[in-house]
């Protein structure tokens, strides 16, 4: 659903992602490359269309935001310079920047880790899942 708010939000996502979703030719190479494809409710190539169509509410609710691995396979291979990974990340940013938008809380951590967990995992997850 496109509303005045979603229009602004879509523009914001396009802006901070630094990409132009209109360049997408719907080839699907991103979705073919994505290792988290199965877990995603909105697939990488669809992300681009959602931004173009300003359907930001659906994007904000999407599980995909939390499954994107930032592995940059789609960024590397996108033939149209759209780089869907950057769009997913921008959408995720707009969510975690809102109040109550965090996907991870410090309280959950002890149950999720073992003795060998490298610090890198925690800082990365905090950066990706929280403001």
């Amino acid at each position: 659903m496109s509303t005045a708010n979603s229009k602004t939000a879509a523009a914001k996502i396009a802006e901070i992602s630094g990409t132009n979703p209109l360049k997408c030719m719907k080839c699907g190479k991103c979705s073919a490359s994505c290792p988290a494809f199965e877990k995603m409710d909105i697939k990488p190539h669809q992300f681009v269309s959602y931004v173009v169509n300003e359907d930001i509410e659906a994007l904000a609710k999407s599980e995909s935001l939390w499954y994107c691995l930032s592995c940059f396979a789609c960024v590397e291979r996108c033939p149209r310079d759209v780089k869907p990974g950057k769009i997913v990340d921008a959408a995720r940013q707009t969510v975690v920047r809102q109040k109550g938008g965090n996907y991870l809380s410090a309280n959950e951590i002890p149950a999720l880790i073992d003795d060998d967990v490298p610090q890198q995992l925690l800082v990365s997850a905090f950066r990706k899942f929280r403001r």
Binding site: P35, W66, Y67, L69, C71, Y103, L112, L121, L122, A125
Partner: peptide
């Protein structure tokens, strides 16, 4: 190919598959 990176905190199954 990706090992799953930070996803292994909340979705170990995905990382495991990869």
């Amino acid at each position: 190919e990706c090992c799953g990176g930070y996803i292994s905190l909340k979705a170990k199954d995905l990382s495991a598959k990869m």
